[in-house]
Design a protein around this nucleic acid. Structure first.
Lengths: 152, 152
DNA sequence: GGATTATTAATCGTATCCGATCTAATCGGA
DNA sequence: TCCGATTAGATCGGATACGATTAATAATCC
């Protein structure tokens, strides 16, 4: 794993792994959001997917997958669940039957408007650094994805 | 989700969610490490667990869980797999039969010594900011966990 | 225009995560 | 000492992730 150059050598502690910091921060977010999402009966991933769908109507599964960095093997079950909950609609595109178009139902849109978890900004303890951290972590992600893609 | 105060209001795009940045950065790390870990037949989580175990001998499952922010429901299957691969040993503590003690085998230690993924530091594209990001993300995690624990 | 190739979702198997529950072992107080 | 409470792992069911494969539809090429 990516260790700080500073600590290369003997100390192979978890605290020296950036990947572990990200891994565990992700776990922490999942737990922080859980009480909020439980109220509306959604999981973390389901909510993220719903937010991504609220961005634009009639997206395809692949288009959604690009935003979430996921593919149909992961998304299909989630989307079926969201449809079953009455939050989204799924239908084959008549112009290209291979594609499935996705759109929020009024119920789905209403849920998104609630803006759950805005309150959690406080809990991050980041204050004014919030946007900076967000940007840094996003760039980290993009760099890793680029590097991974590169040596295919 | 935690949006930047700056962007509160209309724009509910994924890029405004810190949790999504962390979520997707974690996915990206998993993919970046995959080719390296495939070589030794380990998964991301299994490797993290092994690193945590290399830190100290004869840890209990709970102690390991505290480091990884995981519990026995998640760890037990992983530890059984690692034992089955001959990388760790599991045995009940004679002094307290409720506890299971964990230790690396020579094979497990040898694998850790290889220091896989040190090469990935480059791919993060962080340069000198590496330690700063690591620290920031770790603190973010700790703040979230603390805030979550607080309202139990 | 018919065969080949490519694309899009869906399906399947494996490995996490997590809440809830269970069992065995230990502890503590009357 | 005896019994209820606590603790440590393990088990189970539901929900992600992901590689590999498949089925259906579209595009392409000769």
């Amino acid at each position: 794993m990516a260790r700080s150059p500073k600590t290369a050598g003997k100390g192979r502690k978890l605290s020296n792994f950036l990947c572990f910091a990200v891994y565990s921060a992700n776990l922490a977010f999942g737990r922080a959001y859980k009480p909020l999402l439980d109220k509306v009966g959604l999981t973390y991933t389901q909510y993220i997917a719903l937010v991504a769908l609220s961005d634009e109507d009639e997206q395809t599964v692949s288009a959604l997958g690009e935003k979430l960095f996921l593919e149909s093997n992961t998304l299909t079950p989630i989307l079926k669940k969201l449809e079953q909950m009455g939050l989204i609609k799924r239908h084959r595109d008549p112009a290209d039957e291979r594609q499935v178009r996705l759109s929020l139902t009024p119920a789905g849109r209403k849920l998104i408007e609630q803006d759950l978890g805005g309150s959690l900004i406080e809990a991050t303890g980041l204050g004014d650094d919030f946007p900076v951290v967000q940007k840094t972590v996003s760039e980290l992600r993009d760099n890793l994805l680029r590097a991974t893609k590169a040596d295919d």
